[in-house]
Design a protein around this nucleic acid. Sequence first.
DNA 1: ATCTATTGTATCAAAATGATACAATAATGC
DNA 2: GCATTATTGTATCATTTTGATACAATAGAT
Lengths: 253, 253
Amino acid sequence: MTKIDIISDAALKNGIRQFLETAPDIYMAGVSVDTVIFGFHHDKLKVLLLRFGNTPYFVLPGGYIKKEEDLDDAALRILQERTELQNIYLEQFYTSGNISRSNEKVAVELAFKMIGTIPNSNWFGQRFVSVCYYALVDDTKVNPVTEAFFTEVKWFDINKLPRVLYDHDNIIQKALKRLQADLDEKLAAFNLLGETFTMLELQKLYESVYQKKLVRTNFQRKMLSLGVLERLEKQYNGKSHKAPYLYRFAQTV
Amino acid sequence: MTKIDIISDAALKNGIRQFLETAPDIYMAGVSVDTVIFGFHHDKLKVLLLRFGNTPYFVLPGGYIKKEEDLDDAALRILQERTELQNIYLEQFYTSGNISRSNEKVAVELAFKMIGTIPNSNWFGQRFVSVCYYALVDDTKVNPVTEAFFTEVKWFDINKLPRVLYDHDNIIQKALKRLQADLDEKLAAFNLLGETFTMLELQKLYESVYQKKLVRTNFQRKMLSLGVLERLEKQYNGKSHKAPYLYRFAQTV
DNA sequence: ATCTATTGTATCAAAATGATACAATAATGC
DNA sequence: GCATTATTGTATCATTTTGATACAATAGAT
């Protein structure tokens, strides 16, 4: 569900002010977490992005690490805050730490402009090394939540991304590359689908991840040979052709 | 060459004192870099480790990131400081950031004991998130260099590692797993060998990385089919059997 | 009843992999 | 010298995997 959630200007400014006052006491300085949340709907691979304030720019869902919190726990917490999901498939794939993370200064200036004053905390101005995770979610179960400086939560087609801040475009591409590598090896695909699915849906998912067409009959043969699919009753979908079987992912049958 | 370099107690204490005085001004707090340096000799895969002070514990070569330095540049600098090599094959593979990075407190206590006093800087006591890289080097060209708190630089067989501090054992195993994945895909193996090598040497390298025996004839067929090996003159090695060819790695012939 | 689009399965060729055989070579021992 | 031994380079065959195509079954549209 491409739920869109817009918050008011006043609430936005207030949220930022509050964050800046408490952040240095709560979080590690210098290290952040960014997550590339993948979803799949309408046969397309999607990424969840946040609109940065009232600007036309988007960013990856991210956050900071509490001073007494494990890195992986931080990633999970940030993800849960944003999607309200439990049991999320999460993989760390890259850490971004170049000084010039593209247009970072633009972002900081925008942040300042948004709250209409120079904050006494220099939190955003400091250098961050960002540890990046990707997550695979069943988008039908996601309930996107906005917070602090973000005015909108939106799914974007991986091939139709908006303008993003920092080096987040680079991070998204690296996430996709890693997902491609993990899809077969870790049977990761099924985290992007619902409980049941047709073979065609599964194929469209693979095609959208690998960004290329696959041969239907050979794909079907390969998936069935994995031995992890349980075949359920046929799905009569009202289309004018043979009805497909439904499948369920059944690890270690 | 398993060069061993031992420095004096006085020089050691002095090095630590000096480091602690200047570190907070020079380096980012909270973020460190660790490198798993792989080498290959006597048909074994090796890892370069540093002896921590006068203790029996070893650690990975690591360091900190200068305030105005890119993350990748920091990894390269740390590696060059330790090996005096240029053009090193380097891959970032993991970032370790759990609060309880195993026996960290032991290490800190040891560090304090070594310099015989509580340092005014709490540098070592702070929490670090460590970005980990692995490097592939031709060990015949490495000139291991000791520094600061380390009293010895030594190559260890991947299967005969000493006791290591922090979570460095975990990091080494993760590095090996990643190397296994990269070996074929990125033709990474040749960075571990000298300019020329025999097919058997190459096979022993693959076997030591994958930790399993390979069938000689099929391995040879596969390597030759890659199209990246240039066959040179035979190597008369004085052994009582047919002399093998030498090969050179020739990318994009 | 026929047409159309899609699904499930079968089949054949081509490529990759696994297993084995064997001739060539270079020192060793007689 | 000459057979012996260990290793190397290549060939060959069977098996498995992959790519490409054919075709019957189905379910609604006409």
